[in-house]
Simulated scan of single mutants.
Amino acid sequence: MKSAILASLIASAAAFVPAQDAARSTSLNGAMDDLKSIAEKSNPVLKYYDPLELATTSIWGNTNDATIGFLRHSEIKHGRVAMAAFVGYCVQSNGIRFPWPSVGGDVSFDGLSPPEQWDAMPEAAKWQIVLFIGFLEFYSESVGTHYMRGGQAGKFPTFAEGDIIPHPMPLNLFDPFGLSTNASAEKKEKGLISELNNGRLAQIGIIGFLSEQKVEGSVPLLKGLVSHYDGEPMAPFSF
């Protein structure tokens, strides 16, 4: 748990979500200035904190601004995944499921914890999920201005922006019902900063669940609340 908290604090300096329509800084050190500004907004107590100096380095021969764009996008994306995982874990742990079979065959998830439910799924079903996520990753990296080349970190392009999908998609992934279309820039920025902080907390939360399941007592607050898991949560195709 302490390691997860430390990792979250380090990551807080590495990425942020800008306002959807906010103007990008044109100064030479714009990415760093934006980074420090959003760090103070997302955590007024900690503010800008980068003990590993991740935000002052460069990767793969890119500029520092491009590197900051990569780190920002990476944390936003992992935060969103963690939020989905945390909510999914809570729902699955309480036996909340669709009223119809979610996979083929005679698979039963009764009495199984979330990691055990994954293990019980047929391999074909697992590959469906992995390949769909892979498609979303490919699409987000291929369409629009890349986040390392002046694009917006954390933005998932609408399906109308690209021409690689052979048929029209009625709903977009990020905002399917257009609820934020007419929101002000200030409201969007506040919402995205909240998303960033929630993502950081969710990363701690889901790792805490899995840690306690694997090593009982490693997260004292969860002791007795989650069942022991004998499998390997970091090897999704192992049995």
Rank of each mutant, 00 (worst) to 15 (best):
W118V: 03
A39Q: 00
L112Q: 13
L9M: 07
A124S: 14
Y49T: 09
Y89M: 05
I38C: 00
I133E: 11
F237E: 07
P176I: 06
P115N: 11
L9Y: 10
F209M: 14
K187T: 10
K155Q: 03
D163N: 12
I96K: 05
R72I: 02
G154W: 07
P115T: 10
I68Q: 00
A125K: 01
D163W: 06
M121Y: 05
V45E: 04
E212W: 06
L46D: 00
F16Q: 01
R80A: 11
T145W: 08
V226F: 11
I68P: 02
E116T: 10
D106N: 14
D21V: 05
P122V: 12
L28S: 15
G134D: 12
M148Y: 12
V130F: 14
E137G: 12
Y229M: 08
W100C: 02
P18K: 00
E123R: 15
A31P: 00
A84F: 11
A183N: 11
L225H: 08
A66P: 05
A23R: 01
Y49F: 15
I129Y: 05
F98R: 02
P114A: 09
G151L: 05
L9Q: 14
D33K: 00
I164H: 01
W100G: 00
M32A: 11
F135H: 08
A183R: 11
T158M: 13
E212T: 10
K36L: 01
F132D: 07
A14K: 02
N172E: 07
F138P: 06
F237M: 14
F177N: 06
E53T: 09
L112M: 13
A125W: 09
I133T: 14
V107E: 01
A22S: 08
Q213G: 14
Q152K: 15
P157Y: 02
S180V: 14
K188V: 07
F135A: 12
V103N: 04
D106Y: 04
P220A: 07
W127C: 04
V219R: 05
M148E: 09
A55I: 00
G191F: 12
N197G: 03
S8T: 11
K223G: 08
F70V: 12
A4R: 04
S211Y: 11
M148R: 08
E75W: 10
G88Q: 12
S42K: 10
Q20N: 02
W127R: 10
A160K: 13
P168A: 03
S142E: 07
W100H: 09
M234Y: 15
A124M: 05
T56R: 05
I5H: 06
G95E: 03
H146Q: 09
N182V: 03
R97T: 09
Q20C: 06
I38M: 10
G150P: 02
A39V: 05
D230R: 06
P170W: 05
G162A: 03
L210A: 15
G151K: 01
